[in-house]
Design a protein around this nucleic acid. Structure first.
Lengths: 153, 153
DNA sequence: ATCTTAAATAATAATAATTATTGTTTAGGA
DNA sequence: TCCTAAACAATAATTATTATTATTTAAGAT
């Protein structure tokens, strides 16, 4: 498996911005590089702290706004798409979730094949796994674009 | 597969509260019943709205506090344990995540066995799945309790 | 190289979600 | 019934995020 290097990602940065019609500003480059170099899945607040070491004058809003922009154009991902508010589940039976990326509806997913999901090694990197949970991201029936009605001639 | 009924869960409610040393108050019963009857994985705010239809005088803080209590004693689960703040990932390669339930550290998990995780049916319930992502919850090495040193006699 | 203009930025205000505080009320045992 | 710790309602405070606005800058046209 070959992973993209930091340098190759930065090489692409201007091109990706151009594709999206975004100016490749210094702030954006530093924010993006900081994220590529961060292996710890930082919060926006932590990214702000790190970027501020290089650009002390940058504002929090600029960091938040550009993170959002990067997510929108697919340059970044959120570990968790349901981070804006808690979502509760009183169902303690083993199950997984379907999450609609458009309306954020969550549906239970019972599937014994998914129940068997576990990593090859017992404890990857000394991490003691308590349980594996599968999240299926997609589009729920209500949010699927209906085929536009053909107009008869 | 047999799922616990609403009634059987309510039957257990007092016992579970007693076990945890919690008074089985009317407010708690209504909050819990509302959650058991909600199939839509509601937010605390939505639970508050629903509970308020039965107990108009209840305060938001009571609902939030008891939800937290129920999660703490394992009567409820959060769909997503990382909901308090966004967490970012500039790594677009296919991978999964290890999430420490104690310190909320997130670690990348590459595993081709997990890569194959997908539900039996193509589109469960008409839901169009874009991708499956596995979250492994557990305890990271830093957070694992070290064996208390034996005192030599 | 300079000019122009739309986009980006910094500063700040506002909003939303959650948690803490405090005085009052209630559950459950003596 | 009385007592006391726990739970409650009301409210203030905190944290994360987004919106607003005036200023600055990037990038193409001159």
């Amino acid at each position: 498996m070959v992973l993209a290097s930091t340098q190759s990602r930065l090489d692409d940065f201007r091109a990706r911005c151009a594709d999206a019609g975004l100016a490749a500003t210094h702030q954006r480059l530093v924010i993006y590089r900081t994220l590529v170099e961060s292996k710890d899945h930082p919060s926006p607040e932590l990214v702000f702290d790190r970027v501020r070491e290089e650009i002390p004058s940058i504002s929090q809003a600029t960091v938040y706004k550009n993170i959002r922009t990067f997510v929108d154009i697919g340059l970044l991902r959120e570990v968790n798409r349901l981070h804006q508010t808690n979502r509760l589940d009183a169902n303690l039976d083993r199950h997984h979730h379907l999450i609609c990326v458009r309306c954020e509806k969550v549906t239970d997913l019972y599937d014994d094949q998914l129940d068997g999901a576990r990593a090859r090694e017992e404890s990857p990197g000394g991490f003691q796994v308590l349980n594996y949970q599968v999240e299926a991201y997609g589009v729920c029936p209500d949010c699927q674009p209906t085929e536009p009605a053909r107009i008869a001639h």
